[in-house]
Amino acid sequence: MTGVRQISVFASNRPGKIAAITGVLAEAGINIMGMNIASSGDFGVIKFLVNDLEKADRALREKGFTISLNEVLAIEMEDVPGGLHRIADLLYRKNINVEYSYGLPMKPHRNAILIIEVEDVEQAKLLLKNEPLRFLSEPEIQKERG
């Protein structure tokens, strides 16, 4: 299965901080496919799934942002009642702890993409290898996203 990388940005919790980051991405012509904010009072970590990771990385570094790249799992999720539960239950049975998660819509199939972030992504991939799940690669997300 192919890994999907997201870019995380450290940010003080101040008005205009997100706009400062998205401004850099917009100027660099980067499309944001998914986004999630993990906040802890005075600071937070903003995570982006983008169409051009290298370019986003370069643009944000140049502007002095504190960033980190890490791999996440992108799993196709049926857009029906119980769709998320099927995956969550599987993760539970494999004893995989989810740190962060967010969903993306998918265009042609009325399905969705679930992005999950775990402490040990390599181990999670190994544990889920033989399960009936569809993992999406970066190009696949770009193609299938709604």
């Binding site: 995380s8 937070g44 970590v45 504190t66």
Partner: peptide, 18 residues
């Protein structure tokens, strides 16, 4: 100020540092 190198994207690690 945190050091650039210690940032790994995990908010829990920052909370632990704090």
């Amino acid at each position: 100020e945190i050091q650039r190198e210690v940032f790994d994207g995990h908010v829990e690690h920052l909370i632990r540092l704090k």
